[in-house]
Every structure is written in C-alpha cells, then in structure tokens.
Design a protein around this nucleic acid. Structure first.
Lengths: 275, 275
DNA sequence: ACAATTTTGGAATTTTTATTCTATTACGTC
DNA sequence: GACGTAATAGAATAAAAATTCCAAAATTGT
C-alpha cells in the first residue's frame, strides 16, 4: 500500500494534517482507526504514550507504530516530538477560552459561537435542575403503551420532532412524523391505541395545537413538550414536559429540548424492549 | 527542612501552585532552582522528561526527583500525571458508559436525563475549546457570497439541516433544503453562484456525499459540517467545520452541532445585512 | 478454490526514562 | 576549626516505554 507516502516526515503540525488527510482514504481498517482517532485527538499526542493512544483508537500498539511510519516518521517518538514542541497548553479551562472567543470582537463568528455555547450550557443546567421526574415517568409510560407514536412539531420544534422520528425508527418503535408536507392532513392516521407526542414553543403553532386537540377529542393520550405549564398545549396533555430554554436573539438553542427528547426516546425504547 | 510538607500529593494544579508557593521559601539552593524553574515553566511539565526539566533548571536529575517528593508526590511520574490530565480533559469512554446504561436498562428516565445533559454539556465545552476560528470565518465568507444556500443533511444530521433552513428563512436568506422527500433529486437546482452546506457524520450518508461531490464538480463552494477532518466529506469542502460530539449507540446529542449551526446562520445573516 | 500478497496481533527485544542509593561535599553550630 | 547534620551529584538499578519481528489471519486477484 502507501509505502511511498512516507519518504520524509512532516515538519509542522499543518503538514501533518495535510498528509493525514491525503493518505487516510486508502488505508486498511486498523490504520484507518488510527488516522481517525489521531485526527480527532491530536492534542493528546503530546501527552500520551503509544499504549494509551492505541487503547483509545482500539488497536494494538504495533498498529499505531506502523501508522506513524506510514506518515513518514521513524516511529512514534519522532511524531510525538513534533507535537511536544508545538505544544502550548491551549485553553486549559473552558471559561477562559470562552472569554477569549468573545474578545475576538462583538458580532464576529467566534464571539457568537461563545454566546450560543453559553446559552446551550445554561439551558442544560436549568433542565437538570427543573426536570419533573414524575411527568417524565408518566410520559414514558404513555408512550410505551402506545401502538404507534405520532410526532408533531413545526418550525422551531421541527428539528426535535424529526430527530425523535429518527430515534424511534432506529429503535423499531412504530412512529409517524406529521410534517405537513404538501399540506396534507394526516389526522385520520390517529387511531385508537396510539399516542401523540406534540412539541411547540411560544408562539405556539396553530397546526400543532389543532392536532393535539383532535387527538384529545378522540381519546388518545397526548404528551406535550413545551415551554411553560401554562402553554395552550399543556391543557390537552396527559403528561407535560417543560423545557427551560435560553433564547439568544430570535433563536433558541434547543440543547435542552434535544437532551430531553433523546431521553424520552431511549427510555421508551428500553421500556418496550424490556416488556 | 520541609520534610513534613509532603504528606499527601496535590490533586489539582491549583493545589500544586499553592503548595509550591508555601514551601519555596526556606528551600536549599538546588531545590530552590527546581521550584523557580517549575513555577515559571509549569506548562512544560506535561511534555518533558526528568532529564529535560533538570537540564532547564540546571540541576542534576536526582535533585528534581527530590523536589517532586518534597511536594508530596511519590516521584516525577505522579507529578507529571497531574499536569497531563489537567490539559487533557477528554471524556473517558463516555459513550460506552451510556451504552451500558441503556442496555442494562438499570437507569430510570431521570438517570438517563442526567447522562444526556452531561453529554451535551461536555460536547459544548469541547466545541468551545476546539473550534477553529479560521475555518468558521471562511465558512461565513463562503455562505455570505452565495446566491442561494443549499442545505443537505440526512438521518441524524437532518434535524440540523432543517433547523438551518428555518433560521435562514427567518433571516431572509435564500436557502433550499434538500430533504429527499419523494426520492426527488434536486441536484439540478444547484446553480452557479450558489453554495452548499453539507452535514454528515459517520457513518456518512451516501446521498450527502454524492450531492457534495456534484456541487464540487460544478465548481460550487462546499462548506462541511462533519465529525473528523478525515471524513470523506472534508475532501470536497472549501471550509471544514468539525464538531466534537459524544455518540451513544446510534444517537448523538447534537448540542454542539446545533450551537455551531446557529452561529453559522446568525453570522451569515448579519454579514449579509451589513453588506 | 487456490496462491500470492497484505494486514494484523502479540511476544520478544531494545532503548529510553525514572528512581534509588551512596559516597562526597557543603553548611551551620559550638 | 572540628563535629554533626543536611544537601548534593552521579553512578547503579529498576521500571516503563518504544520498536521490531514473525507467525497467523485476512484479502485480493486469478
């Protein structure tokens, strides 16, 4: 294979990355694992041993040695030297790095990123604090018992609904995403024995509320993911999950909402598998 | 002298500094040199050998060993471990932890939620630490210049793509979501002057890669959001944004991915409005 | 299905690195 | 200025790490 690739060792981290990208295609399985792991954790090279890195990449140490040689180094030590020399203990802790990003100028992409990361983190923390365990248990119970889980969420909530649809499908749970494509109305698909998982945040989307009301009228249980207990969706629901999400500008980070959504999906999936 | 100082080793870098400051008065000559050098170059500890550090401090290696022991460590290796771990804040096999939790079914929904919140938090922190500002700037520049922004992301990445579509629409940026509904092939919609924002994670979706290759072939710039620099998508791209995200089984928390996505959308939006 | 070639895993080996030990030196005290 | 104590340097040893090598397994092409 790539026996010619490594005539001369990369002299800088940049060169290293280039070569890595250049060769990593035609690499056999184990060496590819090395390439992927090293690319994702290049900051660890300077402070790890062969054995540690190999364990991380889930390959034997000798595979990692071969990998180093294919890249043009005489061995691991030479590769490590490159990274040790370039090593500046970047941004040891998260908060100073955030400050640093913000300082790159108000409105700059980096500063924005810092804001959104912060918003997401706050949302997650708030969720952990405020989560209602009883409501969560009840939601799981309702969805576990359902024949088909109907999912609805539009606009801002659509990513969440579509993610749930993906997750349910992966776990072999019958689910149907009501996405309103082609303005079709799928409400006739709601059958006795099913359940609806509805997601909407202020300003609440009319279609979602309508579908929830419809399900309620037919006697189907409704699980709500929304922003307040006083939301119009909450009235229709047999279980209400509220998500405190920090808005930044007109947008909402969705971090907390998605975390809750995955929890729900996995909990329902294991509950069903176990029953 | 300070023979009692080292009853127990410092557990954090903070503690280390405190103890160093506390004892470094009253130290004999050689040990003083060690203390001074280490204090001034503590960032090198993680990536140096005893011999290198000793040479830097202009003392024999054995002096440095004694110094480590006076600080409370069993030897140099233990001290070094402290610094290596402090700068390598990875998530030690977090995904297997989650997988185990899921498979054992031992976790109550509330416990699951705690895990997913933690995963999201870690992802966001890692994003802040590892974000490539230059790549982000370039991605913004590319999308700012585009007539229409085409979005593609399937399966796990679909929520991200759909959220971007929503955000772009809110900001009056011409955007088109390639969602593959009805197996329609929209590639003819790629026109000169447009740009493609493609999102895919391992295992990479074939359709996304194909569309990216297609765009590339027509000379359109491609911005990639993916998991590794060695991803097949990265090859097609004029800007590559990598997102560190904790996977668990087939799922991915998406917290970091969405934070980056919003950043991109808002940055492009303000850049366009300002131009 | 077979042979040729590549890839792999693990044990054996070598090299490097950390650590201990001890004779010697320096220091402070009386 | 001699004695006792503490500190030091460097050699000796132990431990850990890197690197090589080869037989077995897997792939590839015919």
């Amino acid at each position: 294979m790539n026996e010619l690739a490594g005539s001369v060792a990369p002299g800088t981290v940049e060169e290293f990355r280039e070569r890595l990208a250049a060769i990593s295609d035609g690499l056999p399985k184990r060496l590819r694992q090395c390439a992927d792991y090293v690319a994702a954790n290049s900051d660890r090279i300077a402070v790890s041993t062969v054995a540690e890195l190999a364990a991380g990449a889930d390959v034997p140490p000798s595979a990692l040695m071969r990998f180093c040689q294919i890249l043009g180094f005489s061995g691991f030590s030479e590769m490590q030297r490159l990274f040790r020399e370039a090593y500046v203990p970047g941004w040891p802790d998260y908060s100073t790095r955030l400050t640093n990003l913000k300082e790159s100028g108000a409105g700059s992409p980096a500063a924005l990123l810092a804001e959104f990361v912060e918003a997401g983190r706050l949302s997650l923390e708030a969720l952990a604090k405020s989560a209602d365990e009883a409501a969560l248990d009840q939601a799981v119970a309702v969805l576990k018992a359902a024949d088909t889980v109907h999912l609805v969420g539009l606009r801002r909530a659509f990513p969440v609904a579509s993610y749930l649809a993906y997750a349910f499908e992966k776990m072999d749970i019958p689910a149907m995403l009501h996405d309103g494509v082609g303005k079709l109305d799928h409400r006739h698909a709601l059958r006795s024995g099913d359940a609806l998982l509805a997601i909407t945040f202020s300003p609440y989307s009319e279609e979602t509320l309508t579908l929830a009301a419809d399900a309620r009228a037919r006697g189907l249980p409704v699980v709500a993911m929304t922003d307040r207990l006083t939301s119009p969706l909450a009235r229709q629901a047999s279980a209400v999950l509220t998500v405190p999400e920090v808005d930044f500008g007109a947008f909402r980070s969705l971090s907390a909402t998605l975390a809750l959504a995955i929890t729900l999906a996995v909990a329902v999936g294991t509950a069903r598998a176990g029953g």
